[in-house]
Design a protein around this nucleic acid. Structure first.
Lengths: 205, 205
DNA sequence: GCGTGTGAAACAATTCACAGCG
DNA sequence: CGCTGTGAATTGTTTCACACGC
């Protein structure tokens, strides 16, 4: 019931719950029990109830959870119910894919500016954004209210770019570069590392 | 010392260790202590020693760990020291980025075939691969010895494509589709979900 | 002395089991 | 009765602290 001291692992599960709630809503369902949802996702019903209980009481005794209501509550907890402005650093093949990734736009995470360290790319288009030089980063972040940076540069440019993002005032970075970033306290990094994912897969084969 | 019953969370840290070992090797270092490595990565020295102890004894008392030796041992544990053959399903912008992603090739994970459900794309090139139709999947997987599938299709096509991969005999899937896949026991799925990562970031902001 | 490897202790997460409510 | 919400019990993970070897 209290929202203090929520384990990080619980927060990482909330987006998963949202995904499955949306799927059920699309199928025209209205209500689900923790048992039903657990079967669907592959976790225990107790875990779902416990996870939700960190944030409040969202279910109805004897009935289950209202899908639309629970989804809206979870999105609110994640602050995913308001619009976010993202800056993309790195206009390579990956940057291209990210700019065109529909999931982001459809879920209120909007890439509003693109940058590249390579001055040859500056001025050309990526999606409907004009690629800017890193010199413009701080001004653009301030002007457009950018809250989150996406790093999609080669690993040898990543730390410098991260430093630039931090200097511009950004407090959250989604890092696609295959390297651990060092950032000051108060800045949060989420790391996506496909090679690491493949290596954990091949371990089990 | 025994290799039985290794917690999954330990396995997910091994690629991280490998990354930092490689970084140190590039810088010309030869040896590091668990304390030095812990400072670098941001974990406790005890955790590193405990993690490694699940697999054997790799350090030297009073000295630390030989970087090249430890890296080779970790790569061997992860089975990342031999070549793997991957099949890409989905030749959109993301598939494009994945085919050109150097990390994979440089680390022995080779995309050797590409497929798409859209017959209009079949026959055209992606990188230096010719896009094939899903009908060819089983034969190509068998012919080329594909062990891992990469799913980079829209969510409404993902479960069907996953079923096709499973039917072709594949036992590991790297899933970029924003949806939970249901697969039989014995098939392992690693899920990369950038939106979920953004949502955990915005939670903390 | 320095730093590993490892049981034991401390801490964290998950699951159990049941009171309580609609 | 069905199903939530939650303390208590269990299980899993991390950290401690020290014996041992270089």
């Amino acid at each position: 019931m209290a929202m203090t001291d929520v384990p990080e692992v619980v927060i990482r599960r909330l987006p998963l719950y949202v995904r499955h709630l949306e799927h059920l809503i699309e199928q025209g369902e209205r209500v689900i029990s923790s048992a039903g949802m657990g079967r669907l996702i592959g976790v225990t019903p107790a875990q779902i109830r416990k996870d939700l209980s960190y944030f409040g009481e969202f279910g109805r005794q004897g009935l289950g959870y209202d899908l639309v209501y629970l989804r809206s509550q979870l999105l609110h907890i994640l602050q995913a119910d308001k619009q976010w402005h993202l800056a993309l650093i790195g206009a390579g093949a990956l940057g291209h894919a990210l700019v065109h990734y529909r999931e982001f736009r459809e879920h209120l995470y909007h890439i509003v500016a693109a940058f590249d360290v390579d001055s040859a790319k500056v001025g050309s288009q990526i999606g409907d954004l004009t690629i800017q030089g890193m010199d413009d980063l701080a001004d653009t972040v301030a002007d457009l209210g950018v809250e989150i940076g996406i790093l999609a540069v080669p690993s040898d440019a990543a730390q410098q770019a991260a430093d630039d993002l931090v200097a511009s005032g950004i407090k959250a970075i989604l890092n696609y570069a295959p390297i651990g970033l060092s950032v000051p306290d108060g800045v949060r990094v989420a790391h996506i590392d496909p090679l690491a994912s493949l290596q954990t897969l091949s371990y089990h084969l």
